[in-house]
Write a protein that binds this DNA or RNA. Structure first.
Length: 979
DNA sequence: ACCGCCGGGTGCC
DNA sequence: ACCGCCGGGTGCC
């Protein structure tokens, strides 16, 4: 896949990758350019299952070219310009010729057919996917009956001969093309693949990339905009810039990138396609600011500031004006959108305000300006209340934390899949009414509602942020579309100001034939949070998300690391950027040229990205000052010596475990006993923390190999509970990311449920485990709760401390003596360990709070608010389970963090550190990692280093195969147990 | 003439 | 299509 190509093609790209990888090794060095330097990372392992061969565009080489003819032009409406790209499409059911090959223009309109003799040759090649055949019409305009077409044959090297042979049978010979066609149409590599591509020096390339974002000199990205009065938070300069940029993008009628007006036509400079109809402006884009720069706040400000027709959300008493136009602050370019223009032209609205009127400030709280309001009476968009007595001041409506009790995320997910979803609605105070929907007015009106789609883990963060940043007296209706009682009535949704939902719900809704309100409502605006979640174009989730209809579309993505050039397509497709909604045009005009090192492709990519993306990093500067001046962050590793008793227990368990595992090694059955191995490792890790964490002995854990299937299954589930409840942050071997709805196979390997189901589905009927090739089937997958409520701890045991707790308590006490108000976060993967620590904290008189996965959303919010409070009585310590809370979790009240046990995945640790080292942190952050000397924990550090190295790009290594993956796991186990 | 030639009809797959 | 191709009309000069 892309990895292979990039390795064999332009050396500058290879260098780029290495440069990138080296930098990611140290997260603090991430720069804006990393967003793109990452384009070649391919993060899908089992690609055979997840992507079909035809989509594997990147590994194709040009076999050669051929001049052919398109016939039958007069029967079709599709027209083609000189040098315009065309798409070839097989038409096997054509009643005259089963070899028929249709020719379509960029818009998908049929232009004609490939002449039958040539079609006879092409059909076999196309049907067997021996080559992709791409066409460019050299002189397309004004041809009445036929037109020539230059065909380029692209395929995998191993298919080249077969294609040449096949063409020869039909009397065709592939050769070079006349040089006239655009470079990216034929591919610059034809002369000598990869070698002749224009080589830029690394310095040049780097400069190019850096320019893309660090050179934010464009007006639209440096202008600031004060938010609507409805925003209760003072925006930072870079957030005002984001707001200005987003508002101007939403109100802009500019042509999308690569489109020009030429005479009466709109012309696409990439494909040479022209049409009379103006292509839709891209009223949105990608907000790719680094984590912690406040993307959520920027979007909330956007919603409130550009609420309707360039006007802000009504604040204060203006809200109460019944059937009156709101005339307050006016933002953006004040260019009417197309819809508005249409409305105007309808003639019904003779008295629509002139532009001057619109700009005329009409203070929202000046309720005595009758005449003026009369003047505006007929303006269509009103913010009126249904009730006649809507005049009273309305108290705050967003009461996420109390009005709704989101339960545990997992329960939610389970309830959802169990068909009993749970609803949460941020309810309004009884007696007030939802303002009349704007979308229920005349059809030309813009819809009212903003739909926000996010992963479940950040849903509560959105609610919190609305709560925090919307002024208390602003009546913003937010509906959380989630859970069993959610209203399936599109009318209800389209009356809201904001609807919050998750990707999972969107996918469910999409699959639902009758009740799919999310896909029935025409939204004003849709915002994809963590937009990279739609990067797999084949995923149902992506398809479901892409089919949401909205005027304005935004993608938020803060972890550019996950973006590859490939991923960008889904986003562009979501933004409805013509002609990229069709993958072929994206590949032919941008992706392939770029991966082949074509300079033109690169500059096209740059101008595209520049046009639709705003990205600032933690190190970006505004007028020479960093946008974000985060205090320093220091990470210390503190080695712990176990006490003699602890060491004794540890060593005997270690020896026992080693014996078990080395037996598996000798038998070659390590992966088959993976569950047992993991249990051993968990036990050892637990012993490093506290002896009481381990209740059973290992001998009860090791598989005996007998027992009924039910017993085996139960044992397995128990083992997995141990493993999973410990927060062992295994990645899914299929998607290589942290587990999403983990399930375990009978062979004890854990995958994301969607991932493994896809594998099972595609390998039917004899699906094999991707890790051990054991038989798997859907019915035998066991769903594992991500967090197990406390059950392992032996309650009757008398409390005692441990070496690690002692070290922690020493540090905490020391610190309290220095400054009693310093707040700390204590992180462990073992929630039981946190409970043991609680006792120690109580004994020493610390006030603490706690956040773990077993808590309801309500309790979590309470805990966070409590901890973040600056009250003198507020807790100074937060006990946090490593994986609790999403990326949005903000614990900046703490400036100290104690990581009690190392995580498998260094990225998980980093993410955890960022919860206090982020926007809003004013103090230097000191992080202490406790690691037990001469133990599995030290070995885990080694593995962390290796993983970092790997992530930092072992040059020249190709993508690991499933076998290499297995070997890597086995090697990891060896390292962990010193075998 | 089992041809050549003429000129009208016709035209994707 | 200002082509090619088809097939009917036609047939010394």
């Amino acid at each position: 896949m892309s990895w292979r190509v990039s390795m064999s093609s332009g050396s500058s790209w290879r260098f780029l990758q290495s440069a990138q990888y080296r930098r990611t090794g140290n997260p603090s060095l991430l720069s804006s350019s990393d967003f793109f330097l990452n384009f070649e990372i391919d993060d899908v392992i089992l690609s055979d299952d997840s992507t079909s061969a035809e989509e594997d565009f990147d590994s194709l080489v040009l076999f050669g070219s051929l001049r052919g003819n398109v016939v039958g032009l007069r029967y079709y409406t599709g027209v083609v310009n000189n040098n315009e790209m065309v798409a070839l499409q097989r038409e096997p059911n054509n009643q005259y010729d089963r070899n028929a090959v249709k020719v379509n223009n960029i818009n998908g309109e049929q232009v004609g057919h490939i002449k039958k003799e040539l079609a006879a040759a092409l059909s076999y090649i196309m049907d067997n996917k021996l080559a992709r055949v791409e066409g460019v019409v050299p002189h397309g305009a004004n041809n009445a009956f036929t037109m020539p077409v230059n065909l380029n044959f692209w395929g995998k090297p191993e298919n080249k001969q077969a294609v040449l042979d096949r063409m020869k049978i039909h009397g065709y010979k592939l050769g070079p093309l006349p040089a006239s066609s655009p470079a990216f149409a034929s591919g610059p590599s034809f002369k000598a693949p990869g070698l002749q591509a224009v080589q830029m020096t690394t310095e040049q390339l780097k400069t190019e990339f850096d320019k893309m974002f660090e050179d934010l000199k464009e007006d639209d990205k440096t202008k600031m905009l004060e938010p609507s009065k409805a925003v209760g938070t003072v925006l930072l300069p870079h957030q005002k810039q984001a707001l200005s940029w987003m508002v101007s993008r939403e109100n802009s009628n500019n042509l999308p990138p690569f489109w020009e007006q030429r005479n009466k036509f709109y012309y696409n400079t990439l494909t040479n396609f022209a049409e009379k109809e103006k292509p839709e402006s891209i009223r949105g884009g990608i907000l790719a600011d680094d984590m912690g720069l406040g993307k959520t706040l920027s979007v909330i400000a956007l919603i409130l500031t550009n609420f309707h027709n360039g006007q802000p959300f009504p604040t204060g008493k203006s809200r109460q004006l019944k059937k009156e136009s709101y005339c307050g602050e006016m933002y953006g370019e004040s260019v009417p959108s197309q819809k508005q223009s249409k409305a105007k032209n309808k003639g019904k609205n003779e008295s629509l305000m002139s532009r001057k009127d619109k700009m005329d400030p009409c203070p929202s709280d000046n309720s005595s300006s009758r005449p003026k309001r009369e003047q505006h009476r007929k303006v269509k968009y009103t913010f009126s209340s249904d009730s006649e007595d809507g005049g009273e001041s309305i108290p705050r409506k967003i009461k996420a934390s109390s009005a709704c009790s989101l339960q545990d995320d997992n329960q939610f997910a389970m309830a959802l899949f169990g068909g009993t979803p749970i609803t949460k609605k941020i309810s309004k105070k009884k007696g007030t009414t939802i303002p009349k929907t704007l979308s229920s007015g005349p059809s030309d009106e813009l819809p009212r509602t903003t739909l926000i789609i996010c992963p479940l883990s950040v849903l509560s963060n959105w609610i919190d942020q609305f709560e925090q940043h919307v002024k208390p007296d602003v009546q913003l209706n937010i509906y959380v579309y989630y859970g069993p009682e959610r209203s399936k009535d599109p009318e209800v949704l389209s009356k809201q100001d904001v609807v919050l939902t998750t990707y999972t719900v969107v996918t469910h809704d999409y699959g639902n034939k009758s009740e799919n309100p999310l896909h029935k409502v025409k939204w004003l605006r849709v915002v994809l949070d963590e937009g990279h979640t739609i990067r797999n174009p084949n995923a149902q989730q992506t398809k479901a998300t892409l089919s949401i209809q909205a005027e304005r579309r935004w993608v938020l993505t803060g972890t550019p690391i996950q973006n590859s050039l490939k991923d960008l397509w889904s986003l562009l497709s979501f933004l409805k950027l013509k002609p990229f909604t069709e993958r072929e045009w994206w590949h032919r005009t941008i992706q392939r040229p770029v991966t082949m090192g074509d300079q033109g492709g690169l500059s096209r990519l740059q101008s595209l990205i520049k046009n639709i993306t705003l990205r600032r990093t933690k190190t970006s500067k505004i007028k020479g000052k960093p946008v974000l001046e985060l205090p320093e962050r220091k990470v210390f590793i503190q080695r712990i010596e176990l006490s003699d008793e602890e060491r004794h227990v540890y060593n005997s368990m270690r020896d026992e475990g080693k014996a078990i595992i080395s037996r598996y090694f000798n038998e070659g059955t390590v992966l088959a006993h993976y569950a047992d191995v993991l249990v051993v490792l968990v036990r050892l890790r637990q012993l490093c923390c506290h002896p009481h964490l381990v209740s059973s002995t290992l001998s009860s854990v090791a598989s005996t190999g007998d027992g009924t299937p039910e017993e085996l299954r139960e044992k397995l589930v128990n083992k997995m509970k141990i493993v999973l409840s410990s927060g062992s942050d295994e990645e899914c071997a299929i998607c290589l990311e942290s587990l999403n709805m983990p399930v375990i196979t009978y062979c004890a390997h854990v995958f994301c449920k969607p991932c493994i189901c896809q594998v099972i589905h595609s390998e039917q009927p004899n699906a094999k485990c991707p890790l051990c090739r054991g038989n798997i089937c859907q019915e035998h997958l066991v769903e594992c709760p991500e967090e197990e409520p406390e059950s392992l701890l032996k309650q009757e045991q008398k409390w005692m401390s441990s070496s690690k707790i002692n070290a922690l308590m020493y540090a905490l006490t020391e610190q309290r003596n220095k400054d009693p108000r310093i707040k700390s976060i204590i992180v462990s993967q073992f929630t039981n360990f946190l409970s043991l620590i609680e006792t120690a904290l109580r004994e020493s008189g610390f006030i603490f709070t706690r956040l773990d996965g077993s808590m309801t959303q309500k309790k979590r919010t309470e805990a966070i608010q409590c901890f973040q409070s600056s009250d003198a009585e507020s807790p100074t310590i937060m006990l946090l389970s490593l994986k609790a809370g999403g990326v949005g979790l903000n614990l900046t009240a703490a400036s100290r963090l104690f990581l009690m046990d190392p995580a498998w995945n260094p990225a998980a640790e980093e993410q955890c550190f960022d919860r206090c080292h982020r926007l809003g942190q004013t103090k230097e952050v000191i992080i202490t990692k406790f690691v037990v000397k001469d133990s599995v924990e030290e070995n885990m550090l080694k593995i962390q280093d290796k993983k970092r190295e790997l992530a930092a790009g072992a040059f020249g290594t190709k993508k690991p195969t499933s076998n290499e993956m297995k070997q890597a796991r086995i090697a990891e186990i060896r390292t962990l147990v010193d075998l």
